[in-house]
């Protein structure tokens, strides 16, 4: 069971969190301008990285905040976490 560092609440058990998969998949601003293949790439295709992987999690049984976290998918070693939309955590995190 992973110990995940919520940038807002601190370290908590994995069971408090929901998983959101790969991070940084931006929704196209003009979907209608895309080809079917480009749309399929956005909707379905994933890098599924083996190694350092930036992903998103939500502290669903805690503060409810989404955040990003870098995790090595082979060792589960954790890297930096990040927040969305400039909602910065309190200093004492």
């Amino acid at each position: 069971m992973l110990l995940i560092h919520c940038p807002y609440c601190g370290p908590r058990d994995e069971t408090e969190f929901g998983y959101g998969g790969e991070a940084d998949i931006a929704r196209p601003l003009e979907p209608e301008a895309l080809s079917d293949a480009e749309w399929a790439d956005y909707v379905f295709m994933r890098t599924n990285t083996r190694g350092r992987f930036k992903e998103q999690w939500v502290h669903s049984h805690g503060c409810g905040r989404w955040f990003t976290m870098v995790r090595n998918t082979v060792t589960h070693e954790r890297g930096e976490t990040g927040v969305f939309g400039g909602v910065e955590p309190e200093a004492d995190g």
Binding site: E22, A40, M45, R46, T47, N48, R50, T73
Partner: peptide, 18 residues
């Protein structure tokens, strides 16, 4: 489980998560 890793070697992307 490693399909995406092999796909990347050929410059392809797959709709797969491991």
């Amino acid at each position: 489980g490693h399909a995406s890793v092999l796909a990347e070697m050929a410059g392809l992307r797959l709709p797969i998560d491991s």
